[in-house]
Design a protein around this nucleic acid. Sequence first.
DNA 1: AAGACGGTCAACCGCTCCTTC
DNA 2: CGAAGGAGCGGTTGACCGTCT
Length: 219
Amino acid sequence: MGRLQSVRKGSWTEEEDLLLKKCIEKYGEGKWRHVPARAGLNRCRKSCRLRWLNYLRPNIKRGDFAVDEVDLIIRLHKLLGNRWSLIAGRIPGRTANDIKNFWNSHLSKKVGTENVSLSSTTKPMSETLHPSSAMETGGAEESAQEEGCSAGSHPMEERQQGEEQASFWKRLLFEAGQEGGKSSVSRDGLSSEQGEDDLFVGLERFLSDEDLWTMLGGE
DNA sequence: AAGACGGTCAACCGCTCCTTC
DNA sequence: CGAAGGAGCGGTTGACCGTCT
């Protein structure tokens, strides 16, 4: 105790935003532990990170969600549950917090009334859920080359990660297909009846982000 | 015109997972 | 192999704004 440096809380001022922005521009994302000191901010690292991620980061889309974005969110939520960061990773320019807020204030009611099978969302807790959260959090769309991208980025490891990722999604989709039964995934020809091969094909498209929309049944 | 109520958004807190030593 | 520290995520809360009575 004793030397609690009374870290500032509450809303951010323009000045603080500017300091943080300059700091990130200079040192890059990551290493949040050092950011407050580097930026000369009297904020905790969490606060800095959140502010950057949700507000200051370039390419952040603000304002209303487009119809297709909403649809995508609903589908992804059906598939992933409350994994906001994963969902955000699939919607360029949107942050997990944004999506979460939007869901809680708009969609939860809407979807809740339209179909109540939301509770059956898959939650692969025990799985190694690291389909690189870093990547999912939007890093994929942007400069995923942030220095602190969990260090290990050797080609070999990447491949291995990719495989793990694949099995993760594979499983996820499989479970979703089974549990939900009527989930949009299975609707698009990826039903569990088709076997894992087909599933895998869909999965690869999912991972490559090419036709996610199609895969989710958006045509 | 004033007050009450509801909705939205930004930020904080605690927990869990991952990485490093 | 186990422990400690750091980073990230999801849930929750509080403040602000707009609408209705």
